[in-house]
Design a protein around this nucleic acid. Structure first.
Lengths: 220, 220
DNA sequence: AAGATTTACATGTGATCACAAAACAGGGAG
DNA sequence: CTCCCTGTTTTGTGATCACATGTAAATCTT
Protein backbone atom coordinates (compact mmCIF):
# COMPACT_ATOMS: atom_id res chain seq x y z
CA UNK A 1 0.00 0.00 0.00
CA UNK A 2 2.99 2.23 0.34
CA UNK A 3 4.12 2.89 -3.20
CA UNK A 4 1.02 4.18 -4.93
CA UNK A 5 1.20 5.91 -8.27
CA UNK A 6 4.42 7.10 -9.83
CA UNK A 7 4.46 10.32 -11.80
CA UNK A 8 1.15 10.11 -13.59
CA UNK A 9 1.49 13.75 -14.58
CA UNK A 10 4.15 15.08 -16.88
CA UNK A 11 5.58 17.62 -14.46
CA UNK A 12 8.56 16.15 -12.59
CA UNK A 13 7.78 17.76 -9.25
CA UNK A 14 5.74 14.82 -7.95
CA UNK A 15 8.42 12.92 -6.10
CA UNK A 16 5.76 11.03 -4.15
CA UNK A 17 8.22 9.61 -1.63
CA UNK A 18 7.09 9.59 1.97
CA UNK A 19 9.86 11.73 3.40
CA UNK A 20 9.25 14.31 0.70
CA UNK A 21 5.60 14.60 1.58
CA UNK A 22 6.49 15.05 5.24
CA UNK A 23 9.18 17.54 4.32
CA UNK A 24 6.91 19.65 2.14
CA UNK A 25 4.12 19.76 4.70
CA UNK A 26 6.40 20.72 7.56
CA UNK A 27 8.20 23.24 5.42
CA UNK A 28 4.97 24.97 4.51
CA UNK A 29 3.87 25.04 8.13
CA UNK A 30 7.12 26.59 9.24
CA UNK A 31 7.43 29.07 6.40
CA UNK A 32 3.89 30.34 6.78
CA UNK A 33 4.14 30.75 10.52
CA UNK A 34 1.80 27.97 11.61
CA UNK A 35 4.27 26.90 14.28
CA UNK A 36 5.33 29.18 17.10
CA UNK A 37 9.03 29.83 17.80
CA UNK A 38 10.49 27.32 20.22
CA UNK A 39 7.89 24.64 19.61
CA UNK A 40 9.29 21.14 20.01
CA UNK A 41 8.97 18.35 17.47
CA UNK A 42 9.61 14.64 17.94
CA UNK A 43 10.39 12.09 15.29
CA UNK A 44 7.87 9.63 16.64
CA UNK A 45 5.23 12.34 16.85
CA UNK A 46 5.79 13.33 13.24
CA UNK A 47 5.71 9.70 12.20
CA UNK A 48 2.44 9.20 14.05
CA UNK A 49 0.83 12.23 12.45
CA UNK A 50 1.86 11.33 8.91
CA UNK A 51 1.42 7.60 9.46
CA UNK A 52 4.99 6.77 8.58
CA UNK A 53 7.86 5.31 10.55
CA UNK A 54 10.65 7.29 12.12
CA UNK A 55 12.87 6.99 9.06
CA UNK A 56 11.06 9.40 6.72
CA UNK A 57 10.38 11.71 9.63
CA UNK A 58 14.07 11.80 10.42
CA UNK A 59 15.05 12.59 6.86
CA UNK A 60 12.51 15.40 6.58
CA UNK A 61 13.69 16.88 9.87
CA UNK A 62 17.33 16.61 8.87
CA UNK A 63 16.63 18.42 5.67
CA UNK A 64 14.80 21.20 7.45
CA UNK A 65 17.62 21.50 9.96
CA UNK A 66 20.08 21.82 7.10
CA UNK A 67 18.02 24.68 5.72
CA UNK A 68 17.91 26.45 9.05
CA UNK A 69 14.17 25.93 9.39
CA UNK A 70 14.56 23.85 12.54
CA UNK A 71 16.96 24.08 15.42
CA UNK A 72 18.81 21.00 16.64
CA UNK A 73 19.79 21.03 20.30
CA UNK A 74 22.94 19.43 21.60
CA UNK A 75 21.01 16.36 22.61
CA UNK A 76 19.38 15.99 19.23
CA UNK A 77 16.00 17.43 20.12
CA UNK A 78 14.46 19.48 17.36
CA UNK A 79 12.44 22.62 17.74
CA UNK A 80 11.57 25.62 15.66
CA UNK A 81 14.20 28.30 16.30
CA UNK A 82 13.89 31.31 18.58
CA UNK A 83 15.88 33.94 16.79
CA UNK A 84 17.86 36.66 18.51
CA UNK A 85 17.39 40.23 17.43
CA UNK A 86 20.79 40.25 15.77
CA UNK A 87 19.84 37.17 13.81
CA UNK A 88 16.56 38.67 12.73
CA UNK A 89 18.25 41.83 11.55
CA UNK A 90 20.82 39.81 9.67
CA UNK A 91 18.14 37.75 7.94
CA UNK A 92 16.27 40.93 7.07
CA UNK A 93 19.46 42.30 5.52
CA UNK A 94 19.77 39.08 3.55
CA UNK A 95 16.21 39.43 2.33
CA UNK A 96 16.95 42.95 1.19
CA UNK A 97 20.15 41.92 -0.54
CA UNK A 98 18.65 38.97 -2.39
CA UNK A 99 15.21 40.29 -3.15
CA UNK A 100 16.34 43.67 -4.41
CA UNK A 101 18.55 41.85 -6.87
CA UNK A 102 15.76 39.45 -7.83
CA UNK A 103 13.27 42.24 -8.42
CA UNK A 104 15.83 44.13 -10.46
CA UNK A 105 16.35 41.08 -12.65
CA UNK A 106 12.64 40.55 -12.98
CA UNK A 107 11.94 44.13 -14.03
CA UNK A 108 12.82 43.86 -17.74
CA UNK A 109 10.71 40.70 -18.02
CA UNK A 110 7.69 42.05 -16.16
CA UNK A 111 4.87 42.31 -18.67
CA UNK A 112 1.30 43.39 -18.17
CA UNK A 113 0.01 39.93 -17.34
CA UNK A 114 2.44 39.65 -14.45
CA UNK A 115 1.51 43.05 -13.06
CA UNK A 116 -2.17 42.19 -13.18
CA UNK A 117 -1.48 38.94 -11.41
CA UNK A 118 0.48 40.79 -8.73
CA UNK A 119 -2.42 43.17 -8.24
CA UNK A 120 -4.78 40.25 -7.86
CA UNK A 121 -2.55 38.64 -5.23
CA UNK A 122 -2.22 41.99 -3.52
CA UNK A 123 -5.96 42.30 -3.10
CA UNK A 124 -5.93 38.92 -1.40
CA UNK A 125 -3.16 40.17 0.87
CA UNK A 126 -5.34 43.14 1.83
CA UNK A 127 -8.22 40.79 2.49
CA UNK A 128 -6.09 38.67 4.81
CA UNK A 129 -4.98 41.78 6.66
CA UNK A 130 -8.58 42.89 7.17
CA UNK A 131 -9.48 39.43 8.44
CA UNK A 132 -6.57 39.46 10.91
CA UNK A 133 -5.47 36.14 9.37
CA UNK A 134 -1.76 36.08 10.16
CA UNK A 135 -1.00 32.78 8.42
CA UNK A 136 -3.01 33.75 5.36
CA UNK A 137 -1.26 37.10 5.26
CA UNK A 138 2.20 35.57 5.40
CA UNK A 139 1.30 33.02 2.76
CA UNK A 140 -0.14 35.45 0.24
CA UNK A 141 2.52 38.04 0.96
CA UNK A 142 5.23 35.54 0.14
CA UNK A 143 3.26 34.45 -2.91
CA UNK A 144 3.36 38.05 -4.08
CA UNK A 145 7.11 38.15 -3.80
CA UNK A 146 7.63 34.69 -5.27
CA UNK A 147 5.49 35.51 -8.28
CA UNK A 148 7.59 38.55 -9.01
CA UNK A 149 10.93 36.85 -8.44
CA UNK A 150 10.07 33.88 -10.63
CA UNK A 151 10.40 36.24 -13.57
CA UNK A 152 14.04 36.85 -12.66
CA UNK A 153 14.95 33.42 -14.07
CA UNK A 154 17.39 32.92 -11.21
CA UNK A 155 16.43 29.67 -9.47
CA UNK A 156 19.42 29.48 -7.14
CA UNK A 157 18.88 33.02 -5.94
CA UNK A 158 15.18 32.42 -5.43
CA UNK A 159 15.93 29.24 -3.50
CA UNK A 160 18.19 31.21 -1.18
CA UNK A 161 15.51 33.83 -0.63
CA UNK A 162 13.00 31.09 0.21
CA UNK A 163 15.47 29.63 2.68
CA UNK A 164 15.56 32.98 4.42
CA UNK A 165 11.77 33.09 4.47
CA UNK A 166 11.82 29.64 5.99
CA UNK A 167 14.17 30.69 8.75
CA UNK A 168 12.03 33.72 9.50
CA UNK A 169 8.74 31.83 9.37
CA UNK A 170 7.98 31.23 13.04
CA UNK A 171 9.32 34.65 13.98
CA UNK A 172 7.15 36.37 11.38
CA UNK A 173 4.13 34.71 12.87
CA UNK A 174 5.04 36.00 16.30
CA UNK A 175 5.70 39.46 14.90
CA UNK A 176 2.51 39.90 12.94
CA UNK A 177 0.62 38.48 15.84
CA UNK A 178 2.03 41.19 18.08
CA UNK A 179 1.41 43.79 15.42
CA UNK A 180 -2.39 43.56 15.15
CA UNK A 181 -2.66 46.73 13.13
CA UNK A 182 -4.46 46.62 9.79
CA UNK A 183 -1.47 47.74 7.80
CA UNK A 184 -2.49 48.11 4.15
CA UNK A 185 0.12 46.77 1.74
CA UNK A 186 1.36 50.16 0.78
CA UNK A 187 4.83 49.05 -0.23
CA UNK A 188 3.33 46.48 -2.55
CA UNK A 189 1.57 49.25 -4.41
CA UNK A 190 4.85 51.09 -4.71
CA UNK A 191 6.42 47.94 -6.13
CA UNK A 192 3.66 47.58 -8.70
CA UNK A 193 3.90 51.24 -9.64
CA UNK A 194 7.64 51.01 -10.12
CA UNK A 195 7.21 47.90 -12.26
CA UNK A 196 4.68 49.70 -14.41
CA UNK A 197 6.93 52.70 -14.86
CA UNK A 198 10.03 50.63 -15.49
CA UNK A 199 11.66 52.56 -12.66
CA UNK A 200 14.50 50.38 -11.44
CA UNK A 201 15.82 52.58 -8.60
CA UNK A 202 12.28 53.05 -7.35
CA UNK A 203 11.67 49.32 -7.52
CA UNK A 204 14.80 48.56 -5.55
CA UNK A 205 13.86 51.06 -2.90
CA UNK A 206 10.29 49.82 -2.66
CA UNK A 207 11.35 46.20 -2.32
CA UNK A 208 13.94 47.08 0.28
CA UNK A 209 11.38 49.02 2.29
CA UNK A 210 8.78 46.29 2.05
CA UNK A 211 11.21 43.62 3.14
CA UNK A 212 12.73 45.45 6.08
CA UNK A 213 9.63 47.22 7.35
CA UNK A 214 8.17 44.66 9.72
CA UNK A 215 11.46 44.07 11.43
CA UNK A 216 12.01 47.61 12.65
CA UNK A 217 9.69 47.25 15.60
CA UNK A 218 12.15 44.92 17.27
CA UNK A 219 15.24 47.06 17.52
CA UNK A 220 13.15 49.92 18.83
CA UNK B 1 31.05 -2.73 19.16
CA UNK B 2 29.06 0.09 17.75
CA UNK B 3 29.18 2.79 20.39
CA UNK B 4 32.84 3.40 20.99
CA UNK B 5 34.09 6.48 22.77
CA UNK B 6 31.93 9.54 23.33
CA UNK B 7 33.41 13.02 23.38
CA UNK B 8 36.72 12.47 25.08
CA UNK B 9 37.73 16.07 24.38
CA UNK B 10 36.26 19.02 26.20
CA UNK B 11 35.53 21.27 23.22
CA UNK B 12 31.83 21.25 22.45
CA UNK B 13 32.13 21.36 18.68
CA UNK B 14 32.83 17.65 18.45
CA UNK B 15 29.34 16.36 17.94
CA UNK B 16 30.90 12.95 17.48
CA UNK B 17 27.79 11.49 15.91
CA UNK B 18 28.49 9.24 12.99
CA UNK B 19 26.42 11.02 10.41
CA UNK B 20 28.07 14.30 11.32
CA UNK B 21 31.52 12.90 10.76
CA UNK B 22 30.46 11.53 7.39
CA UNK B 23 28.77 14.81 6.56
CA UNK B 24 31.78 16.92 7.42
CA UNK B 25 34.20 14.77 5.51
CA UNK B 26 32.08 14.62 2.38
CA UNK B 27 31.35 18.33 2.60
CA UNK B 28 35.03 19.17 2.72
CA UNK B 29 35.75 16.90 -0.22
CA UNK B 30 33.05 18.49 -2.31
CA UNK B 31 33.78 22.09 -1.35
CA UNK B 32 37.49 21.76 -2.01
CA UNK B 33 37.03 20.10 -5.36
CA UNK B 34 38.29 16.64 -4.53
CA UNK B 35 35.38 15.09 -6.38
CA UNK B 36 34.82 15.63 -10.08
CA UNK B 37 31.45 16.88 -11.36
CA UNK B 38 29.07 14.04 -12.15
CA UNK B 39 30.77 11.48 -9.92
CA UNK B 40 28.33 8.98 -8.47
CA UNK B 41 28.01 8.09 -4.80
CA UNK B 42 26.20 5.16 -3.20
CA UNK B 43 24.92 4.89 0.33
CA UNK B 44 26.43 1.46 0.83
CA UNK B 45 29.72 2.63 -0.60
CA UNK B 46 29.85 5.57 1.80
CA UNK B 47 28.91 3.29 4.66
CA UNK B 48 31.67 0.88 3.73
CA UNK B 49 34.29 3.62 3.56
CA UNK B 50 33.34 5.19 6.88
CA UNK B 51 32.57 1.86 8.54
CA UNK B 52 29.01 2.79 9.38
CA UNK B 53 25.66 1.47 8.29
CA UNK B 54 23.47 2.99 5.63
CA UNK B 55 21.57 5.16 8.09
CA UNK B 56 24.25 7.76 8.86
CA UNK B 57 25.33 7.73 5.23
CA UNK B 58 21.80 8.49 4.17
CA UNK B 59 21.45 11.37 6.60
CA UNK B 60 24.74 12.91 5.52
CA UNK B 61 23.77 12.62 1.88
CA UNK B 62 20.32 14.07 2.50
CA UNK B 63 21.85 17.03 4.22
CA UNK B 64 24.28 17.64 1.39
CA UNK B 65 21.48 17.34 -1.14
CA UNK B 66 19.51 19.93 0.82
CA UNK B 67 22.47 22.28 0.60
CA UNK B 68 22.82 21.77 -3.14
CA UNK B 69 26.15 20.05 -2.76
CA UNK B 70 24.86 16.81 -4.26
CA UNK B 71 22.41 16.11 -7.03
CA UNK B 72 19.61 13.62 -6.56
CA UNK B 73 18.39 11.93 -9.72
CA UNK B 74 14.78 10.93 -10.26
CA UNK B 75 15.55 7.40 -9.20
CA UNK B 76 17.27 8.50 -6.02
CA UNK B 77 20.85 8.06 -7.18
CA UNK B 78 23.16 10.72 -5.85
CA UNK B 79 26.02 12.34 -7.70
CA UNK B 80 27.97 15.54 -7.55
CA UNK B 81 26.23 18.08 -9.80
CA UNK B 82 27.22 19.08 -13.32
CA UNK B 83 26.29 22.73 -13.45
CA UNK B 84 25.08 24.51 -16.57
CA UNK B 85 26.73 27.74 -17.60
CA UNK B 86 23.67 29.72 -16.55
CA UNK B 87 23.80 28.13 -13.14
CA UNK B 88 27.49 28.88 -12.75
CA UNK B 89 26.97 32.50 -13.66
CA UNK B 90 24.09 32.77 -11.24
CA UNK B 91 26.14 31.29 -8.42
CA UNK B 92 28.97 33.66 -9.26
CA UNK B 93 26.52 36.56 -9.03
CA UNK B 94 25.43 35.25 -5.66
CA UNK B 95 29.02 35.08 -4.50
CA UNK B 96 29.50 38.68 -5.57
CA UNK B 97 26.33 39.83 -3.85
CA UNK B 98 27.02 38.08 -0.55
CA UNK B 99 30.76 38.45 -0.32
CA UNK B 100 30.85 42.12 -1.25
CA UNK B 101 28.42 42.74 1.59
CA UNK B 102 30.41 40.54 3.96
CA UNK B 103 33.67 42.26 3.17
CA UNK B 104 32.04 45.64 3.57
CA UNK B 105 30.80 44.66 7.01
CA UNK B 106 34.19 43.27 7.95
CA UNK B 107 36.05 46.42 6.92
CA UNK B 108 35.48 48.53 10.06
CA UNK B 109 36.53 45.58 12.23
CA UNK B 110 39.65 44.66 10.23
CA UNK B 111 42.62 45.37 12.46
CA UNK B 112 46.29 44.82 11.81
CA UNK B 113 46.36 41.29 13.14
CA UNK B 114 43.70 40.25 10.66
CA UNK B 115 45.49 41.85 7.72
CA UNK B 116 48.72 40.10 8.65
CA UNK B 117 46.90 36.82 8.89
CA UNK B 118 45.37 37.38 5.47
CA UNK B 119 48.79 38.06 4.04
CA UNK B 120 50.09 34.86 5.55
CA UNK B 121 47.25 32.85 4.05
CA UNK B 122 47.80 34.61 0.76
CA UNK B 123 51.39 33.48 0.59
CA UNK B 124 50.17 29.93 1.04
CA UNK B 125 47.75 30.50 -1.81
CA UNK B 126 50.63 31.62 -4.03
CA UNK B 127 52.57 28.54 -3.02
CA UNK B 128 49.68 26.28 -3.99
CA UNK B 129 49.42 28.02 -7.34
CA UNK B 130 53.10 27.51 -8.03
CA UNK B 131 52.79 23.85 -7.11
CA UNK B 132 49.79 23.41 -9.45
CA UNK B 133 47.90 22.01 -6.45
CA UNK B 134 44.29 22.68 -7.42
CA UNK B 135 42.73 21.29 -4.24
CA UNK B 136 45.20 23.11 -2.04
CA UNK B 137 44.59 26.29 -3.97
CA UNK B 138 40.82 26.10 -3.57
CA UNK B 139 41.14 25.29 0.11
CA UNK B 140 43.50 28.13 1.00
CA UNK B 141 41.69 30.55 -1.27
CA UNK B 142 38.43 29.90 0.53
CA UNK B 143 40.24 30.11 3.85
CA UNK B 144 41.37 33.58 2.84
CA UNK B 145 37.82 34.66 2.18
CA UNK B 146 36.39 32.93 5.24
CA UNK B 147 38.97 34.56 7.51
CA UNK B 148 37.99 37.98 6.23
CA UNK B 149 34.24 37.36 6.38
CA UNK B 150 34.35 36.00 9.91
CA UNK B 151 35.04 39.54 11.01
CA UNK B 152 31.70 40.65 9.59
CA UNK B 153 29.92 39.04 12.55
CA UNK B 154 27.19 37.82 10.20
CA UNK B 155 26.93 34.04 10.62
CA UNK B 156 23.81 33.53 8.51
CA UNK B 157 25.31 35.46 5.63
CA UNK B 158 28.57 33.57 5.89
CA UNK B 159 26.70 30.27 5.95
CA UNK B 160 24.96 31.22 2.73
CA UNK B 161 28.25 32.13 1.11
CA UNK B 162 29.70 28.78 2.14
CA UNK B 163 26.68 27.03 0.66
CA UNK B 164 27.45 28.71 -2.64
CA UNK B 165 31.08 27.60 -2.37
CA UNK B 166 29.83 24.10 -1.75
CA UNK B 167 27.66 24.11 -4.83
CA UNK B 168 30.55 25.41 -6.91
CA UNK B 169 33.11 23.00 -5.45
CA UNK B 170 33.30 20.29 -8.10
CA UNK B 171 33.00 22.84 -10.87
CA UNK B 172 35.81 24.94 -9.44
CA UNK B 173 38.02 21.90 -9.49
CA UNK B 174 37.24 21.32 -13.14
CA UNK B 175 37.77 24.98 -13.93
CA UNK B 176 41.12 25.44 -12.22
CA UNK B 177 42.21 22.16 -13.68
CA UNK B 178 41.50 23.47 -17.16
CA UNK B 179 43.12 26.78 -16.33
CA UNK B 180 46.65 25.58 -15.62
CA UNK B 181 48.06 29.07 -15.66
CA UNK B 182 50.07 30.25 -12.66
CA UNK B 183 47.78 33.14 -11.87
CA UNK B 184 49.22 35.12 -8.95
CA UNK B 185 46.57 36.18 -6.46
CA UNK B 186 46.51 39.73 -7.67
CA UNK B 187 42.97 40.47 -6.51
CA UNK B 188 43.84 39.28 -3.06
CA UNK B 189 46.53 41.90 -2.87
CA UNK B 190 44.01 44.51 -3.94
CA UNK B 191 41.70 43.34 -1.19
CA UNK B 192 44.45 43.62 1.41
CA UNK B 193 45.44 47.06 0.16
CA UNK B 194 41.86 48.30 0.33
CA UNK B 195 41.53 46.93 3.85
CA UNK B 196 44.69 48.72 4.88
CA UNK B 197 43.51 51.99 3.38
CA UNK B 198 40.00 51.66 4.75
CA UNK B 199 38.79 52.12 1.17
CA UNK B 200 35.31 50.63 1.08
CA UNK B 201 34.48 51.19 -2.62
CA UNK B 202 37.87 49.77 -3.54
CA UNK B 203 37.28 46.79 -1.31
CA UNK B 204 33.89 46.08 -2.83
CA UNK B 205 35.32 46.27 -6.31
CA UNK B 206 38.30 44.07 -5.48
CA UNK B 207 36.13 41.38 -3.88
CA UNK B 208 33.70 41.45 -6.78
CA UNK B 209 36.54 41.05 -9.25
CA UNK B 210 38.19 38.26 -7.30
CA UNK B 211 34.96 36.35 -6.98
CA UNK B 212 33.82 36.63 -10.58
CA UNK B 213 37.16 36.36 -12.31
CA UNK B 214 37.53 32.63 -12.74
CA UNK B 215 34.07 32.24 -14.14
CA UNK B 216 34.54 34.51 -17.14
CA UNK B 217 36.34 31.90 -19.18
CA UNK B 218 33.13 29.96 -19.54
CA UNK B 219 30.89 32.47 -21.23
CA UNK B 220 33.65 33.27 -23.71
C1' DA C 1 26.47 -9.66 -35.82
C1' DA C 2 22.95 -6.48 -34.01
C1' DG C 3 18.96 -5.45 -31.59
C1' DA C 4 15.52 -6.82 -28.28
C1' DT C 5 14.36 -9.39 -24.26
C1' DT C 6 15.18 -11.49 -20.09
C1' DT C 7 17.79 -12.42 -16.08
C1' DA C 8 20.81 -11.01 -12.29
C1' DC C 9 22.72 -7.58 -9.48
C1' DA C 10 23.00 -3.21 -7.17
C1' DT C 11 20.69 0.53 -4.96
C1' DG C 12 17.31 3.53 -2.50
C1' DT C 13 13.30 3.40 0.66
C1' DG C 14 10.84 2.46 4.61
C1' DA C 15 10.01 -0.41 8.85
C1' DT C 16 11.48 -2.34 13.07
C1' DC C 17 14.53 -3.20 16.86
C1' DA C 18 18.09 -2.51 20.62
C1' DC C 19 20.51 0.77 23.11
C1' DA C 20 22.10 4.98 25.49
C1' DA C 21 21.17 9.24 27.05
C1' DA C 22 18.31 12.95 28.11
C1' DA C 23 14.00 14.77 30.10
C1' DC C 24 10.51 14.10 33.50
C1' DA C 25 8.08 13.09 37.68
C1' DG C 26 7.84 11.84 42.26
C1' DG C 27 9.45 11.35 46.79
C1' DG C 28 12.54 12.13 50.58
C1' DA C 29 15.92 14.99 53.29
C1' DG C 30 17.22 19.42 54.90
C1' DC D 1 9.16 25.16 50.88
C1' DT D 2 13.35 24.03 48.31
C1' DC D 3 16.74 21.08 46.61
C1' DC D 4 18.54 16.73 45.31
C1' DC D 5 18.21 12.14 44.18
C1' DT D 6 16.19 8.19 41.87
C1' DG D 7 13.24 5.48 39.02
C1' DT D 8 10.44 5.80 34.86
C1' DT D 9 9.44 7.33 30.44
C1' DT D 10 10.48 9.53 26.27
C1' DT D 11 13.54 10.41 22.52
C1' DG D 12 17.36 10.24 19.13
C1' DT D 13 20.82 7.10 16.97
C1' DG D 14 22.47 3.44 14.48
C1' DA D 15 21.96 -1.34 12.63
C1' DT D 16 19.55 -4.66 10.05
C1' DC D 17 16.04 -6.45 7.14
C1' DA D 18 12.38 -6.89 3.34
C1' DC D 19 10.94 -4.98 -0.76
C1' DA D 20 10.48 -2.46 -5.14
C1' DT D 21 12.94 -0.44 -8.72
C1' DG D 22 16.40 0.82 -11.70
C1' DT D 23 20.68 -0.54 -14.04
C1' DA D 24 23.57 -3.59 -16.30
C1' DA D 25 24.85 -7.92 -18.02
C1' DA D 26 23.76 -11.93 -20.52
C1' DT D 27 21.04 -14.55 -23.45
C1' DC D 28 18.10 -15.28 -27.21
C1' DT D 29 16.08 -14.30 -31.71
C1' DT D 30 16.37 -12.93 -36.37
Amino acid sequence: MSQTLRASSSVPDTSASAHDRVYRTLRARIMYGEIAPGAALTLRGIGREFEVSMTPAREAVRRLVAEGALFLSNSGRVSTPELSNERIEELAALRALLEVELSSRALPRAHMALIERLQSINSTVAEMVSKRDAVGYIRTNLEFHRTLYLRAQAPAMLAMAETVWLQLGPTMRALYGRLGRTDPPQNHRLIIAALRAGDEPGLRLAVRSDVTQGLRLLAG
